[in-house]
Amino acid sequence: MRSRQGLVVYALTILLVGCISHSPSVPNGQGKAVDNYMNLAKGYIQEGYIEKAVKPLNRALEIEPRSSDVHGMLGLVYQLQGETRLAEKSFKKALSYNSGAAEVRNNYGAFLFSRGRLDDAYREFSKAAENIDYEKRSRAYENMGVVAHKQGNLVSAQAHFEKSLRLNSNLPRARLELATVLHKSGDYGKAWAHYLMFAKQARQNSQSLWLGVQLARVNGDKNAAASYGLQLERLFPGSKELQAYRSLVRHE
């Protein structure tokens, strides 16, 4: 599935994290200034002015140079700019100041995944998931599943996706990935059940519709298979999934 090629990993949405921790040595007034600079940087990012986000973050670091949160956000900003060396340096510095920063580890894992460093990414996601207090543990397990799936380890991928869904049942990506893994493993009934739940939670794309066609057919639901096929025809006329569907129908 294409989602495995470009791991969503929520690294950018995490920029909206609200709770920022400050060093005890930073007075409340200065801590508030750091928060304001970070919020200003977030606003620039949301508006698409990525280059402008660096300055307020550097101002925040002038006040609190050992802030893991600020260095972690700076890593995301550099990643958005394509400055991979600076991004990794910022992520590492953030973790050197707070090795338990699960949010930063999850984001760093996303960065490593984008660089094709799957083993390193898996390690960071695992460390994030180990933090029982991390409020997005489900995302970390989901990301572990994506890496395991890309590496061809279906058993581990299934376990990670199931864990993520136990923690948060409203994860359509994990639901779809799990359906894909189960389909590959030959557990068609269970795959179909998860796929139907996914279809209620998220908008379809060409890859998910093609999976739906295959699962509907193998589970004997001809009407659903035809419906998904029609959606492929209507919504994704130039897709490779539509070509595969047409080839399947022609050879019946």
Rank of each mutant, 00 (worst) to 15 (best):
V146K: 06
V146L: 10
V147E: 01
K150I: 00
Q151S: 08
Q151T: 00
Q151D: 03
N153H: 11
N153A: 10
L154I: 08
L154Y: 01
L154W: 03
V155W: 00
S156A: 14
A157N: 11
A157M: 04
Q158L: 02
A159N: 09
H160S: 13
F161M: 01
F161S: 03
F161N: 04
E162P: 04
S164Y: 04
S164A: 15
L165C: 02
L165M: 06
L165E: 01
R166P: 00
R166S: 14
L167T: 09
L167N: 00
L167D: 00
L167R: 03
L167F: 05
N168I: 06
N168G: 02
N170Q: 13
N170L: 12
N170T: 12
L171G: 02
P172V: 13
R173T: 12
A174V: 07
A174E: 10
A174S: 15
L176S: 08
E177L: 03
E177C: 05
L178D: 05
L178F: 01
L178Y: 02
A179W: 12
T180Y: 14
T180N: 08
V181W: 06
V181D: 02
V181T: 06
H183Y: 15
H183R: 10
H183V: 03
H183F: 15
K184E: 15
S185V: 04
S185N: 11
S185G: 06
G186W: 02
G186F: 02
Y188I: 06
G189E: 13
K190V: 09
Y195S: 10
L196H: 11
M197H: 13
M197P: 02
M197L: 14
A199L: 07
Q201A: 15
Q201G: 04
A202N: 15
A202F: 05
R203S: 11
R203H: 11
N205M: 04
S206T: 10
Q207H: 15
L209T: 11
L209C: 06
W210Y: 15
L211S: 08
L211T: 08
G212H: 07
V213S: 04
V213Y: 07
Q214I: 09
Q214H: 11
L215W: 04
A216M: 10
A216R: 13
R217N: 15
R217T: 14
V218C: 10
N219E: 14
N219Y: 03
N219F: 03
G220T: 13
D221H: 07
K222E: 14
K222Q: 12
K222T: 12
N223P: 00
N223C: 00
A224N: 12
